[in-house]
């Protein structure tokens, strides 16, 4: 059943519940992202997104929440959302002496597993969304006082269902023309870079 009365964790994370099915809820935790990096400015630090979340789903869900509280926010992109840990380690930069010089690997960005940064187009979008989320998070505590049905207020989360085709596609041959092109392009860039280095 729904965890009521917890709208915000002690360390400042808003608790954002989503309906999955009767009496089953998912909880995402959000906080304004503190950063000096330009690339991550106007961001929301998000913990525990539901399975197979992408930026389009988030845009849809957040606009629903914003509209609930008569506001608007423009999402730019979702950063570091690496649900399956595929990009946790960048072998390429770790093995390349070339890349190391230009882009210090020790400084390379990462966020912990199961977290990401949602970047908005500007500060007002971020603020609008954050305020809406705060109000949304308080629904569970405030509405229970009014004895209203909280369930009706909460957003229903729709998962993206992969089909069987998605799974067996992993076994499918790579298109040869695509592969040739990819290899050719990559090696061309690599050689250029090497030449520049010399």
């Amino acid at each position: 059943s729904l965890a009521t009365g917890i709208d915000c964790m002690k360390n400042g994370f808003l608790v954002i519940p989503f309906k999955l099915s009767p009496n089953v809820y998912h909880y995402t935790f959000v906080k304004k992202h503190q950063t000096k990096l330009d690339s991550e400015s106007n961001g929301l630090f998000v913990v525990n997104l539901p399975l197979l979340t992408n930026v389009d789903i988030l845009k849809k869900v957040l606009s629903q929440i914003c509209s609930k509280f008569d506001t608007i926010a423009h999402v730019e992109k979702l950063l570091y959302n690496d649900e399956f840990g595929l990009d946790e380690i960048d072998l390429s930069s770790l093995t390349s002496d070339l890349l190391k010089d230009t882009n210090n690997t020790n400084e390379s960005r990462f966020t912990p597993r199961n977290t990401s940064v949602l970047k908005f187009v500007d500060e007002s979008s971020l603020n609008n969304c954050f305020n809406a989320l705060r109000k949304y998070s308080q629904l569970t505590s405030s509405s229970s006082k009014k004895n209203k049905n909280v369930d009706d207020e909460l957003i229903q989360w729709e998962f993206e269902n992969p089909s069987i085709a998605t799974f067996i596609n992993f076994y499918k041959p790579i298109d040869i023309e695509y592969l040739k092109n990819d290899v050719y392009e990559h090696l061309k860039i690599f050689e250029q870079r090497e030449l520049e280095e010399e």
């Binding site: 965890a3 917890i6 915000c8 964790m9 002690k10 608790v15 999955l20 099915s21 009496n23 089953v24 809820y25 998912h26 909880y27 539901p50 399975l51 197979l52 998962f159 993206e160 269902n161 992969p162």
Partner: peptide, 22 residues
Amino acid sequence: KPIDKENVILNKEAIFQEISAF
């Protein structure tokens, strides 16, 4: 899922939903 303002516990039910969806 949160159990109070400081503590959380594994959200089994949600995981089951996720697996079913997946």
